[in-house]
Amino acid sequence: MNELFGSSRVARGLVSSMAWLCYAFLLVPSLIVIPISFGNPGQIEFPPRQFSLELYRQFFTDAAWWGSTVQSLIVACLTTLATLVLAVPAAYALARSRLPGRAGLQGLFMMPMLVPVIVLGLGLYLQYSNWGLLDTTAGLVLAHVMLTTPYIMVSVMSGLSHSDVALETVASIMGASRLRIFFRVVLPQLKTSIAVGALFAFLMSLDEVVVAYFLTGTDSMTLPVKMYSSLRWELTPVLAAVSTLLTVLSLMIALGIIAMQGKTEASK
């Protein structure tokens, strides 16, 4: 009745067919890699004419694929941990102090989100080639900490703005030390927003390709860089298996985040 485009059946039909075409365009490509990954290992084929797990065997046994996957997982874990350790206390300090220049610092922490990633890739490449950090895990983790900081920041700041300051005040009046308040009163309230931010940072680091492409070489190559060069030069069917695994992982992380966010909203 009170639809946004009135009650014309033609208009409604047109809009919904357009919408479903778009849903298909957004959804089908990602889904189609799944049957391809269980099909013919010789070529990319849809619909697959045989069933085989050969592509997965290749993925898990080829050192170039599996090695870069392990490297990516290591980088993503280290990045998530390091960003949490750096960004959670910083977000807390921003939210609970009256330091002059807070807005400027917050701008600095958010900036990586606003700078084209290729510019950061080049800058870090120039810097790391002077400092001997090219093709090192530490260098890449540092870069990813910078890239993921805004996302953890956003999540934790929003958690802090919903958390109850009065509890901290009470704890403080009852003589709890600052450190004790932080670990016993603040952190428990931030559990969900920290988990959401951490999952997001993990996924971002795991999928990040542009900076990693500039900074890594044969020693520290991550999975996205390996995928990028494979897409560029050989287009092997193994990509279907990798894509399927990555899609399932991202989907699990996304659903985890949505579920956690839904839970916090429901409890408010």
Binding site: I36, V242, S243, L246, A254
Partner: peptide
């Protein structure tokens, strides 16, 4: 459904688009 590509790696999307 709309957000799925937002969560998917750009490389997976590129590969998938070539497949389609």
């Amino acid at each position: 459904m709309v957000m799925l590509p937002f969560w998917t790696s750009i490389l997976v999307k590129s590969f998938a688009l070539v497949a389609v």
